[in-house]
Design a protein around this nucleic acid. Structure first.
Lengths: 214, 214
DNA sequence: AATTAGATTGAACAAGTGTTCATTCTAAGG
DNA sequence: CCTTAGAATGAACACTTGTTCAATCTAATT
C-alpha cells in the first residue's frame, strides 16, 4: 500500500546503492562470459569469478542461468532499438530518405555504442551467439523483430519493385554482415590501432546499399 | 612390415565393413548434435543416443569429445574446398572470368552439396557455430583459410583498385551472408516447399557482386 | 533507534558430465 | 582352420554443473 514504486512490480524496498552496483557487476560479468563462451560454455562459477562475487549472489540477482541470460540479452536491446529508430527518424527529417541512409540508420548506432562503451562489443558477440543458435530464436524475435520489421517496411517503400522475399533476404545478409564486422577483432586483419572502425562501417553500408540495388 | 596401408598411419588391421558403418553413424550423429546444440551444449550421451550406440563406442571411434568435434569439422572440409576450387577453375576456363562467376564458384558448391545430401545442411550449421566462437578460430583457419586466400587473390586481380583490406572485408561480408542463408530454415520466411534455394542463392550472388562494385 | 526486507555468503546437494576400463564379441590375417 | 587385433558394451569413476539453503550482515523504512 505504501509502496512508492510505480512499475507494476511490487517491490517492498528499493535497491540500495551497493546492491545496484553488485547487480550491474553481475550482469556485466555474465555478458562478458556468455559472449566469450556462449550459453552452455559459460558457468555460473566463471561468472561469479569474473564479477568477484560468490556463487550465491549470481543466482540471487540473476534468478538462474537461463533467466540471467535472458536478462543480459534484454538489458541493452531496448537502447539499441531506440537508437536505431531515432537514427531512422533523423534521416527522414532532413533528406527525402534514401537507401544508404536507411541502412546507415540501422547499422551505425551499434558501432557508435561500441565506441562509446566497450561493453557493447561483448553485447554484439552475445547477439552473434544468439543468432546462430535455434534455441534463442524466440528471444531474438522478441527483442529485435519489431525494429527489423520497421526497417524492412522502409526498405520496401524505397524499393517497391523488390518482392517482400528479396527485401527479407537482403536484410538478413545485411544483419549477418554487420554482426560479422562488429565481432571481428582479428577476422579482418589490421582494423587499425587508434583508428576507429569508421572506414569499415562505411564500407559495410556501401556494400549492402549496392547489394539492394544502389 | 607386412602392412599394406600406405597412409603413414600404421594400422595393423583394416576396418571391417561393420566398423566403417558404425564409425560413419557416429560421425553423422555427432555432426547433427553439434550442429543443433553447439560444442558445449552437445553431450556424448546425446550423440550416442542419436547414433544408436553405447557411450563407449563414441569414444572408441571419436577419441574424446574435442577430437570428435575436430574430426567432424574436418571430415567435409576438404570436399567443400575441392568443389569450390574446381568451380573456380571451370569458371576461368570458359569465360575471361568475371566477378559474379568468382563469387558463384565460392557460394554455389555449398548449396549444391546441401541439395544432393541433406547432411551438408548440418555441416553448414556446424560451421556457423565454429565461425562465431573464438575458441575454434584455429581449426577454422586451418580448414578454410587456404581456399579463402585463393578466392581473395582472384578478387584482387579482378578489382585491382580495391585495397587488400576492402577485399578482405567484402569477403567476410559474403561468407557471413552465405552462412546466414544456408542456415536459415525459418529465418527467411517461406523458402518454398519443393522449390529449391536457387532463387535465393542467385540473389545472394547478385547482392555480393553488387557490393564488391558490380 | 528499532524493525526487518532484502543482500551477502559459502557450504552442501543432486544431477549430469567426459572418460576409463574390464569384459565379451567379431572378423581380418595367416 | 586358428589366432588375435580391434570393435562393442555398459558399469563405474572422478569431477563439474546449476541450484538450494541456513546463517549473517546491511541499510531502507517507520
Amino acid at each position: 500500500m505504501s509502496n512508492s514504486q510505480a512499475t507494476g512490480k511490487i517491490r517492498k524496498r528499493a535497491l540500495s546503492e551497493r546492491a545496484k552496483q553488485t547487480r550491474e557487476r553481475v550482469f556485466d560479468a555474465a555478458e562478458t562470459i556468455f559472449a566469450t563462451r556462449g550459453f552452455d560454455g559459460a558457468t555460473i562459477r566463471d561468472i561469479a569469478a569474473a564479477a568477484g562475487e560468490p556463487v550465491g549472489t549470481i543466482h540471487h540477482h540473476g534468478g538462474g542461468k537461463e533467466a540471467l541470460f535472458n536478462t543480459v540479452v534484454a538489458r541493452r536491446a531496448e537502447t539499441l532499438s531506440q537508437a536505431r529508430l531515432a537514427a531512422l527518424e533523423a534521416a527522414g527529417a532532413s533528406k527525402p530518405m534514401d537507401l544508404r541512409s536507411v541502412l546507415s540508420a540501422f547499422i551505425r548506432p551499434l558501432f557508435d555504442l561500441v565506441e562509446e562503451d566497450p561493453r557493447w562489443q561483448n553485447y554484439a558477440k552475445l547477439v552473434a551467439f544468439v543468432s546462430v543458435d535455434d534455441r534463442w530464436t524466440e528471444i531474438a524475435a522478441q527483442h529485435f523483430d519489431p525494429t527489423a520489421q520497421k526497417f524492412m517496411e522502409e526498405l520496401q517503400c524505397l524499393l517497391p519493385k523488390l518482392s517482400r522475399q528479396r527485401i527479407a533476404e537482403g536484410f538478413v545478409f545485411t544483419v549477418s554482415a554487420m554482426l560479422a564486422l562488429v565481432t571481428s577483432e582479428r577476422r579482418i586483419s589490421a582494423l587499425g590501432e587508434g583508428t576507429s572502425h569508421t572506414a569499415s562501417v562505411d564500407h559495410l553500408v556501401t556494400f549492402c546499399a549496392a547489394g539492394f540495388g544502389d
